[in-house]
Design a protein around this nucleic acid. Sequence first.
DNA 1: TTTATAAAGATAGTATTACTATCTCATAGA
DNA 2: TCTATGAGATAGTAATACTATCTTTATAAA
Lengths: 222, 222
Amino acid sequence: MELQLQIKMNKKLFLRDPEQTELGKKIIQHSIEVINKNGFEAFTFKKLAEDINSTEAGIYRYFENKHKLLMYITAWYWSWLEYRIMIHTLNVNDPEVKLKKVIQLLAATVEDDIDTSHINENILHQIIIAEGTKAYLTKHVSEDNKDQFFKPYKDLCAKVGQIILECNPKYKYPKSLSSTIIEMAHFQNFFMNNLPALTDFGKEDESKVVAFLEELVFSAIS
Amino acid sequence: MELQLQIKMNKKLFLRDPEQTELGKKIIQHSIEVINKNGFEAFTFKKLAEDINSTEAGIYRYFENKHKLLMYITAWYWSWLEYRIMIHTLNVNDPEVKLKKVIQLLAATVEDDIDTSHINENILHQIIIAEGTKAYLTKHVSEDNKDQFFKPYKDLCAKVGQIILECNPKYKYPKSLSSTIIEMAHFQNFFMNNLPALTDFGKEDESKVVAFLEELVFSAIS
DNA sequence: TTTATAAAGATAGTATTACTATCTCATAGA
DNA sequence: TCTATGAGATAGTAATACTATCTTTATAAA
């Protein structure tokens, strides 16, 4: 039996489905690497094309522009994370155990546990930390939101909010606490590695980020 | 007696000091408006030049590029905020009262209380919410950090961390909690107005953001 | 009053970016 | 064999992100 995870993506994010062709898969795979290398601002379709030995025009057949590609990648990431949370909390009944698992999945480096073929989840995690918020921090958030481009992110937030409510049905801010955990799992990691004065952690000490978030969340809801 | 706040800026952020000339002040004033109008990605020196009836080359005499200008603006904002916190906590001895004041100053809309001439602090607050993180979410954070471009942000974080420790000297994560408050004061505001599914607040209900943050912080440290 | 000199306007030019368009070629299926 | 699809190759354009140079203007020191 061979199983492979296939995440269903919002069709409006692309012009041609990258999952359906060789070039498409290469675009996703290499875009993650090229964005990681020089950052999203310096990232161009031309550089990506050179990296995969294809042409700029070829990539434009798949994505309208680099921002759509970033939204595709981030949407994929959040869907994948929600899937991982689902897997790792199957048969777990205690909501507090669930919540701890969620925090760990959010804040700790990925051990490559699920086969997703062409996507390097570790690098993906890195670029979501540094570039993820840029997907929605734009003047056209609202239109993009209407097109449901952030649905995976919102679904994840809702799911975590649900678990929070399972822990304490009376807690008043499940969604805000949820988005706080999600963003801070990434921001504290970024700060720890790049602006350490903004944290209490040493370089690459993810376990402390997890501990901080756990304490924060459980003191908030109890 | 006429007093005016003058914030001392890191000299490496500009080529010519914008505070010293008419054009310089116009650049700062109008850049805030032009960035606010179409977002930082769409912002160009050419558009700014048109807005102030000057020339592109003229602006390049003040700032190397638009990212330096963004860092200048954000640095100014954080310095200004620290100054406001100082003013509003003068003669306040109870650290918990101080911390509440800090949260309010971070999360609530600015009432224009201090004279800073050419800068519209309300619009500035808006662009810091949407664009502020882009100042440091780059591949060159570390070099920029070495040049002390983020010092005002780090100073503010340290100051808030200090107040947290005054409230509870045994709390283990004062700096991370501080950066969490600072970022979330902005993110929850952005979410509330643009991606409401990620929060528990209605549109423009800043007082709830304040309440959420207060509860979060005080349950964490007590 | 002359003379520096600094600020800023005017103009031009270049490399790169962000696309669009078109034409060809290979191949896989019907 | 026909035909649709994917993708390589090439060309072109408007805008962006600068750099350079020359002139004008305002001010202030000599």
